[in-house]
Nucleic acid binder design. Structure first.
Lengths: 197, 197
DNA sequence: TGAAAAACTTACTATTTAGTAAGTAAGTGG
DNA sequence: CCACTTACTTACTAAATAGTAAGTTTTTCA
């Protein structure tokens, strides 16, 4: 291995830098609002270098969502997440969205891609569906346990409540984009008020 | 007046047909995913004809949101809406979103523009902010009266609940776009379960 | 150290994009 | 009926787009 100590080198390779920048641009401006030229100029390389790593924008977009899915699975299975009580797991989820808000009010992956969904390559669509499904299933499980153990309170099925909460959170970041951070805080406050027993 | 009877002629003029088609494309594919060529080809005119009515895409986009704002105000002030009890007004709102779902799973205006917000012309941004603010204020008033008269049930402030509900509805149409109609129905069902006393 | 693989750049397509300028045909109103 | 306006079309520009092919430099590693 080149670097036997750190998994995340100080300066990532170009392939990763492309993906990182594309992710930022996706979450800040939308998938149809950035080009290989934008990426190349900001990274100090030629557009063809991007094509070398990701032959088409379809490949790039798909890699982007695939990485996010890997991150979700990794995060979800982290001991410091699995070991939490359900209400703390819910707070950990809120912290993720709050982190998006703190980074230039980036929307979440789902919120960034849903509107343009029909213009996306099929592979990307499939990855996004899986991403959203797994996240919803995870939260449904958290909610189910949380209600059973008395830490969380809601009516209806855990699956329905999970779908509703995640949809609200994705939307809340979009509202923050259009207005400011206030409505996001208001909406999350309302969620806490209703859910936390 | 050219037509003293009908306000909506059977075949609208080109100016209106452009706006109608642009609206469909916006709500089905996103603002950065259609061009003047797309519009022109489908309408059977030349791109320059679109430029004649809407010199730039900024003008077109702004006109689009402005019309939607006019529609909102008109709808909100309709006797058949103002005369309803708050819980029926809430149902009337749900019917609007359900109608979007029924038309090719179109997202709502807000959901279509929020992700790409930073790429939109300032005039369009301003119109969308006003649109969302007025809609939220209207729902907050409905919720306040509904709770006072016992038809609606929720904790927290009407303004917070209104922001939360509208955000959820916008997001629910996006989820329907990504998956299918089921999650939309599930989420709306959850909203009804929680709100209707 | 030298051959091969990886990571690029240069130079180029073909297409699409928004937008403009000039001309034309069809109404409209005095 | 004629000047004027409205609603276009034709023909064009300049820029941006995704993508490719061929050549060059850098890295790796046997």
């Amino acid at each position: 291995m080149t670097n036997p100590v750190s998994q995340a080198p100080l300066v990532p390779d170009t392939r990763t830098r492309i993906l990182d920048l594309a992710e930022v641009l996706l979450l800040e401006r939308g998938f149809n609002a950035f080009s290989y030229q934008h990426l190349a100029k900001e990274l100090g390389v030629k557009p063809a270098a991007i094509h070398y790593h990701y032959p088409s924008k379809d490949d790039l977009g798909t890699a982007l969502v695939a990485r996010q899915l890997r991150r979700l699975r990794k995060w979800r299975d982290l001991p410091r997440v699995t070991d939490l009580k359900p209400e703390a797991q819910f707070e950990a989820l809120l912290a993720v969205y709050d982190n998006h808000l703190g980074h230039e009010r980036r929307v979440c992956l789902f919120g960034a891609l849903a509107a343009d969904f029909r213009t996306l390559p099929p592979a990307m669509q499939a990855e996004l569906r899986t991403f959203n499904r797994e996240l919803t299933e995870w939260l449904a499980q958290v909610l189910a346990v949380g209600r059973a153990t008395g830490g969380l309170r809601f009516v209806g099925s855990p699956a329905a409540k999970a779908a509703q909460v995640l949809t609200t959170l994705a939307g809340a970041l979009q509202v923050a984009r259009v207005h400011d951070e206030t409505p996001f805080q208001v909406i999350v406050g309302q969620l806490r008020l209703e859910l936390l027993a």
